[in-house]
Each structure stands twice: as structure tokens, then as C-alpha cells.
Design a protein around this nucleic acid. Structure first.
Lengths: 117, 117
DNA sequence: GTTCGTACTGACAAAGTTGTCAGTGGAGGA
DNA sequence: TCCTCCACTGACAACTTTGTCAGTACGAAC
């Protein structure tokens, strides 16, 4: 059932990584940092990702308190995800990670696209 | 052959994560941040980890330029690993990650031991 | 009345990561 | 002579994560 969760290590590094670990979580958070989005919008904005994986990751991020899920009871259903107050505390950390990663990519001679714009 | 390496994503977050991802890499780096250590010392200091995994992770960290391997040609062999100059640029990032993780563990009500002392 | 779109679930296969086990060579000790 | 230590390799089993495929309910559009 779980997408990335190992076995709840007491090491703070592992704890942090288990929250953002998962093939697409970084990308999802990056997209949502521009504002709330519907499930289908997110899906279309990351075409390489399947719907199944999107939903599994979203559910974990909601469980971890990083995202907020808001559902309008209409048909067809409309669900909007946004970064929670707690989730915003994660964003500066992602920025630090991203900064190092960008430098590392330069060092290893790779291109730098996708998430970082 | 590889321990955690997905497929070399151009996303800087993934790039960073691929360097520290791997069940034991965070722990290994934490140990080495106190100074160089021999393979067997590292192994004994993290008893839950098998020798096989230690060596695979060490090799990847060396390949990524994070660690330096220094071998004294003696018998029995003596290999010492230390964090490279480049590797030290990673340490502040790990500290940020660790800080958030510690807070997250408090939030989720878990104990905070092992790596963080 | 068939199809479309939405947000989701379940079963399961494929791929990736980690763990287990046995084995290498040569000095030194019992 | 046999065994231990050290750093390491290779084959492969076990587990985890990701991907594929089919299917749910409901209203609206065609």
C-alpha cells in the first residue's frame, strides 16, 4: 500500500527523506508551490507520471500533513490540493536541496531542466 | 550493480537525493563527519547495516565525489574513508534536512536518536 | 444510450534496492 | 596447519517501489 516509507526510522534525516522520497513527490510539491491544483491538472502538468502514482503520492503527502485536500461535492468531483501551512516549512529545505542539486548537475555535466524551470 | 540511482534525472532535487539516497548513506556521512574511518570501524559503528551494503554505499559515495578513499598497501589491508572537499559542501544541506526531520519527528511523536546523537 | 470526464481503488507485474551467503589473498597467531 | 582479520566481489533471494490495466459512480454532452 505505501509509496516509500521504509520502516519509520528515528533518524531525522531518514524522517525528512521519507516525506519527500518517492519518485514524483519533489515535482508535485514544486508544481503546488505556485498555488493549489486539481488532481487532473497536476496529472497533465507531469505527463511522464501515471495517475496511479500521482494519487498514491498525493495521499501520502496529505497523510504526512504536507498537503491539504479540499473537495467540492459536485459531479463530476472536483478535488483541489494545496500545500498546507506545515508543508510550507518544507519549501525552504527543498530550495536548499535544489541549490546543491543544481550545482551537482553542473559539476557532473548534465542539463538542468524540468522542475527548476 | 547500483545502489539507488534511478535514471539520472535532470531535476536538481532528484540529483541531490540520488546522492544521499540509499538506506545508509545519511548515517555513513554522519559518522564520517567526525573524521576519517576505516571500513571495519564504520561497519562496527552501524551494526544494523551489513558489510555488503556498507561497501556498495561507500563505492557510490566515492564515485559521486563525496568521499575520498585512501588505501595503505599493507597486509591486512587498511582503507580509510573521509569526506572530500566537495563532500563537505553537502554537510550544511544535511544539517538543514536534519533540522526539519527532527522537528517532523517531534510532530509525529517519535523518538529522536541514532544519527543525531 | 453510448461516451466522456473526474477522482479514485484493487490486483498484479516489472523494476529497483537491500540483504544473505559463500568466497578471495596473504600476514599473523594458536 | 588451521583459523582469524581485512576489504572486497559475485550470485542470487527477499523485499519495496513503480507502473499497468481494469473497473467504480455519477452527471453531462452528443
Amino acid at each position: 500500500m505505501p509509496v516509500s516509507k521504509k520502516e519509520a526510522s528515528p533518524c531525522p534525516i531518514d524522517a525528512m527523506l521519507s516525506v519527500i522520497d518517492g519518485r514524483w513527490k519533489g515535482t508535485i510539491l514544486w508544481r503546488l508551490s505556485n498555488g493549489p491544483m486539481r488532481t487532473s491538472e497536476l496529472r497533465r502538468s507531469i505527463p511522464e507520471m501515471t495517475e496511479r502514482m500521482l494519487i498514491r503520492h498525493l495521499q501520502e503527502l496529505v497523510q504526512d500533513g504536507i498537503l491539504t485536500r479540499r473537495q467540492e461535492s459536485s459531479v463530476p468531483p472536483c478535488v483541489r490540493y494545496s500545500i498546507s501551512k506545515y508543508g510550507w516549512t518544507l519549501v525552504p529545505v527543498l530550495e536548499v536541496i535544489c541549490g546543491w542539486g543544481r550545482n551537482h548537475l553542473r559539476r557532473t555535466g548534465a542539463a538542468c531542466r524540468v522542475v527548476s524551470g
